[in-house]
Simulated assay, not measured.
Amino acid sequence: MELISVIVPVYNVEKYLDECVNSILDQTYSNIEILLIDDGSTDNSPNICDFYEKQDNRVRVIHQQNGGLSLARNIGIEKSQGDFIVFVDSDDYISTDMLEVMINEMKKNIESTSILMCNFVKVDSYGNVIKKNNYNLEKEIIDKVSAIDRLIVSKDINYIVAWGKLYKKEVFDEIRFPLNKQNEDEFVMHKVYFNCDSIICLDKCFYKYRIRDNSIMNSKFSIKQFNKLEALYDRVNFCKKHNLIDLMNKAQQMYIAYFIDFYIKGMETLTIKKSIIRRKKIYLIKQIFYILKNKYINNREKIIIFLFAINYKLYLCVSKYLAKGRKS
């Protein structure tokens, strides 16, 4: 039986950690190791981790000073001994047959497939199902270009996040998560897919993604969200480097749309220094000539984007006028 390494970064999740770890220990597929990476937790999480290490020899605990989710995952990758890797966030949990089904499906195409992803459901703080993912996966096998295309265009969280997937460990031989960044998955998933010949998609909702009030995805706008903008810009450059021209143009369009939204929210948010937001604007201005050549952006949008780059207030006036025209 192939060994699967389940990497669980842990930080101040004493309320949810038992459910998470037990859902992994109770897997119908038993040949696993669980790496609990305690990232400098200040609550009872370290003691809970140590308890499970004493109870089950498949559990290994690594305590470290707080360095963030990316560092915890990277340490897990480096310390893992399995042929396959799975990431589970410590406030989430998984179905008991998840690993068995996923490894068996992977074996059917073991020579050509390096990643298998499953669907997920959202649950609240008490584990009650809120709703299924809005973008339900179909059972299929896709190539790496299609995976990157869906990552860019569909906004389906299945393709964006690192969790909910079974990876061959070799996929991460030269890839690590970026340190001190939010939206860390957006920096790496296009690179991960590019390392694969094909990706298996399953329609089963094995992963339980917990929605918490203080989670990053639910947090209010802040300057830290510039990290996502950096990730989208990195995506554009990655596609350009590998001559994926159609994907580069699509990635650029997504980058532009997010940039404009980021800039407007930043200018409207009093808690952020407007001078910081203005300095970030240089990222868009540098790309004006690339934007004008992007076949995925129509002429009207190009004019509006150009106005945005040279005069923010003029851009708002034109945008409001066009929006009013569409309503009438």
Rank of each mutant, 00 (worst) to 15 (best):
V123P: 00
D124M: 00
Y126I: 00
Y126G: 00
Y126E: 10
V129W: 02
V129Y: 01
V129T: 08
K132Q: 09
N134R: 11
N134T: 12
Y135H: 15
Y135T: 07
N136L: 14
N136K: 12
L137A: 04
E138R: 08
K139W: 03
K139H: 12
E140S: 14
E140N: 14
E140L: 06
E140V: 09
D143C: 13
K144F: 07
V145P: 01
V145T: 13
S146N: 13
S146Y: 01
I148P: 01
I148S: 05
I148F: 04
R150M: 10
R150H: 11
L151Q: 02
L151D: 03
I152A: 12
S154L: 09
K155P: 01
I157C: 01
Y159V: 02
Y159A: 08
Y159M: 07
I160C: 08
I160R: 14
V161F: 12
A162S: 15
A162G: 15
A162W: 05
W163D: 09
W163K: 09
G164C: 10
G164Q: 06
G164S: 14
K165G: 05
L166T: 09
L166Y: 06
K168N: 05
K168S: 11
K169F: 07
K169D: 04
E170L: 11
V171Y: 12
F172A: 07
F172T: 06
F172M: 04
F172E: 13
D173A: 14
D173Q: 15
D173F: 08
